[in-house]
């Protein structure tokens, strides 16, 4: 497990650093300006968010996750800071899954 983590650290650190200096490297500018790159964050986070709402093997959402997720969406629309949204969602899920939807 530790070896896999370190492999991921090395490869992703190098890859991400290349992306972070792309603006200073002419060869990368064309790729960064490709139209589809603009849609990557939304595509990635929508899929991962939906996975988070239905974490089990089935496709049905976890009710605690749905309510906690709705709270995060509302806080996001209210432009709360990222840290506040994560803590509120995490605590809501903890309380709901422990006390309500047990």
């Amino acid at each position: 497990m530790t070896a896999l983590v370190w492999l991921a650290v090395v490869v992703v650190t190098a890859g991400t650093y290349l992306m972070r200096i792309a603006g200073s490297l002419p060869g990368f500018r064309r790729l960064a300006e490709a139209g589809w790159v603009r849609h990557v964050p939304a595509g990635v986070f929508v899929v991962l968010a939906l996975y988070g709402l239905a974490p089990g093997p089935g496709l049905l959402p976890d009710p605690s996750a749905l309510v906690a997720g709705a709270l995060v969406v509302v806080l996001s629309l209210l432009k709360a800071s990222l840290g506040v949204r994560i803590i509120a969602g995490t605590l809501a899920y903890g309380a709901l899954s422990t006390l309500v939807f047990t």
């Binding site: 991962l48 968010a49 988070g52 969406v73 969602g89």
Partner: peptide
């Protein structure tokens, strides 16, 4: 999941 929902 909260992080991903917020970023989505």
């Amino acid at each position: 999941p909260a992080l991903f929902i917020a970023l989505a």
